[in-house]
Amino acid sequence: MAKVKGDIVVDIEKCKGCEVCITACPNDVIAMTKSVNGKGYHYAESVNEECIGCANCAIVCPDGVITVYKVKL
């Protein structure tokens, strides 16, 4: 199987910290930050190198704040 590596970019100021993306990620890539954004929400961030760019997190994010990238290695 071809190896892939992905990464996500979160629009921090528009994230509402709902954690729905965490449940959707197959590789436990996402966690909530300790710090908060301008609206006072903890926001989602990638916390390891395990992202495979499947976009599960992005398509369930109600606010559409996750952008996903993927490369084949």
Binding site: G53, A58, Y69
Partner: peptide
């Protein structure tokens, strides 16, 4: 294996999904 940086992954040609 993972010597590719996040910066290199986050390029327009690697885009998989973004808000419409």
């Amino acid at each position: 294996m993972s010597d590719i940086t996040k910066e290199q992954i986050r390029q327009p040609e690697n885009l998989v999904y973004t808000k419409t």
